[in-house]
């Protein structure tokens, strides 16, 4: 039984302002640097959300609406400023591309390291190495340092590891789109499989097609708040009408 439960949750970013000696000595030199007076951004505003077993949640909204922040908060990477966050279940996640790799290490070493970081044991990840390698279809490229990889290859690697650790809760941030058509299809299939074994998935996406096709619930976020919550067809329609 896995669950994500957020109650009256707020997340406020403290923006680090660049203030240099130059700015004090030369008046007016900061005019592009003054974007926010108090230096805070209210990224998530009094959020209430419960996601239960079997739910495949799509999160849509404009850039900067707080979608990725929500995902990272659920993952436990960001701590809420205040409010309650209960997440029960083993999490696997995939956020930005091409970060969280050891650039000088080979693909194999990165599979191992990433598997560990996602909470697997050394034996666990070692036993899955071949399966992960096969799914990624990277073949001999896995012997190469990953600094030579293309963004599509990073996606393959990251997605293969993230979904191989058999999480209860899978958090994905739009990343799959960078893979090629064949891989996209494969990834979709795997995501369906994962949800079939009664787990939670949260997918942040700008593709209304993906939201409707892969998810059974959808929330529309704007300025850190949930504007609408319901079946993907309805929410995406409302969202598209709004644009």
């Amino acid at each position: 039984m896995s669950i994500i439960q957020l109650e009256d949750l707020n997340l406020i970013f403290q923006i680090q302002r660049e203030k240099r000696i130059k700015d004090i000595l030369i008046p007016g030199s900061r005019k592009f640097n003054d974007f926010h007076q108090d230096g805070t951004v209210h990224a998530l505003n009094c959020l209430n959300l419960t996601v239960r077993d079997g739910e495949r949640l799509a999160v849509i909204g404009h850039n900067g609406a707080g979608k990725s922040t929500l995902l990272k908060l659920v993952a436990g990477i960001y701590a809420p400023t205040n409010g309650k966050r209960i997440v029960d279940g083993k999490i696997s996640s995939m956020f930005e591309l091409a970060t969280g790799f050891e650039m000088e290490s080979s693909g194999w070493d990165n599979i191992y390291l990433r598997g560990l970081m996602l909470g697997d044991s050394p034996e666990g990840i070692k036993s899955k190495m071949l399966e992960i390698a096969a799914f990624s279809e990277l073949g001999d490229f896995l012997n190469m340092p990953v600094k030579y990889y293309s963004s599509g290859m990073f996606v393959r690697l990251a997605f293969s590891v993230s979904t191989a650790v058999r999480p209860d809760i899978l958090l994905l941030d739009e990343v799959v789109a960078a893979g090629d058509a064949a891989f996209l299809q494969k990834a979709n299939k795997r995501m369906h499989e994962m949800v079939d074994i009664s787990k939670i998935m949260v997918l942040v996406t700008h593709s209304m097609g993906a939201a409707v096709e892969m998810c059974n619930r959808c929330i529309w976020m704007e300025r850190g708040e949930i504007l609408m919550d319901g079946p993907p067809q309805e929410v995406t329609k409302a969202y598209l009408n709004n644009i």
């Binding site: 990272k72 970060t99 969280g100």
Partner: peptide, 10 residues
């Protein structure tokens, strides 16, 4: 370690 800290709960 930015990549790790922003992506995982290490």
């Amino acid at each position: 370690a930015e990549g790790y800290l922003k992506q995982t709960t290490v």
